[in-house]
């Protein structure tokens, strides 16, 4: 199966790409990894008239820490995150998610930023970005724009990224002392989207939770920022089973899943509860410098 016909340009700078995007009206699409877009085009669920391929733009493959932030450029593939020592050492939630996105072949092509920009509530990276408080740096005809990951998605497959903007980099605050994170995903098999997944990041002072953030994947029309669940943990001990259970219950309450082939809504809601607890425990173990 083949996509409908389209025009194709492969600019070598972000400025050229922004210009190209403008010529396509609202109908142009940026292609980075193309691992979500191309399958949709093959099934003719998407038929853009212009593809702006950004793979030839130098400098978009940054993966480094600077100025207190982890910078993930628009061409950083899932597989690079999975293989990165920096990620392995300091961002366990990113490693967790990277190992379970799609399959290893798709991970060699698909990108972090592309996934976030796709606006799919089943996307794992939007949840991770939410849990880690990421900034999303875009460039449009009027220059740079910064969006917050937590409220980036506006509806199914829609985000605050303007049709004339390119998401060029995600920036994630470097971990604080006592920070731990984890991503727990239930999928029916490798390559499946999550039946439900939960990403958490917490900061511990001893065993006391001082900061918490929880994101939920594929349990509603949007990537869910489970703020009440996170807030309920502040001041509680990571060893307080009741508090952890309560956070799970609140996270489940924040979810809004639909019944589908991955299971009925009540199952998915319960998965959120269970996975939230498991993710918090793993994050707690990691925050305390223990292996998990």
């Amino acid at each position: 199966m083949l996509p409908s016909s389209f025009e194709y340009v492969a600019p070598t700078s972000v400025d050229e790409a922004v210009q190209a995007l403008a010529t396509g009206g609202g109908d142009a699409k940026i292609m980075a990894g193309g691992q979500s877009l191309l399958p949709m085009m093959k099934l003719r669920l998407a038929s853009p008239s212009l593809i702006v391929d950004i793979n030839n733009i130098a400098g978009l493959d940054t993966l480094e820490e600077s100025d207190g932030m982890l910078r993930i450029g628009a061409l950083v593939r899932h597989g690079e995150l999975e293989r990165s020592e920096l990620i392995r050492d300091r961002y366990p939630i990113i490693l967790d998610a990277a190992q379970h996105i799609a399959d290893p072949l798709i991970r060699n092509r698909g990108t972090f930023c592309g996934s976030v920009a796709h606006g799919d509530p089943a996307g794992d990276w939007a949840t991770v970005a939410t849990a880690l408080g990421a900034e999303l740096h875009a460039v449009g005809p009027n220059g740079a724009v910064v969006h917050s990951a937590a409220d980036f998605q506006t509806s199914m497959f829609e985000t605050k990224l303007g049709a004339d903007q390119i998401l060029v980099e995600a920036r994630i605050p470097m971990p604080k002392p006592g920070q731990g994170s984890a991503y727990k995903k239930i999928e029916r098999k490798v390559g499946d989207y999550a039946a439900a997944a939960v990403g958490v990041s917490i900061v511990l002072d001893g065993t006391t939770i001082t900061e918490a953030s929880i994101g939920l994947t594929n349990v509603g029309p949007l990537t869910i920022h489970a703020a009440a669940a996170a807030a309920s943990l502040i001041g509680k001990s990571i060893d307080d089973a009741e508090a952890i259970e309560q956070a799970g219950v609140l996270a489940a309450a924040a979810s809004d899943p639909v019944s589908d082939l991955r299971g009925p809504a009540d199952y998915k809601r319960d998965l959120v509860r269970v996975l939230t607890k498991r993710a918090l425990r793993t994050a707690g173990t990691r925050a305390q410098g223990k292996e998990a």
């Binding site: 193309g34 191309l38 593809i51 793979n55 072949l105 798709i106 060699n108 092509r109």
Partner: peptide, 10 residues
């Protein structure tokens, strides 16, 4: 990579 999910021009 999956060559069905990459354009030939790429």
């Amino acid at each position: 990579v999956k060559s069905c999910t990459i354009l030939a021009v790429q």
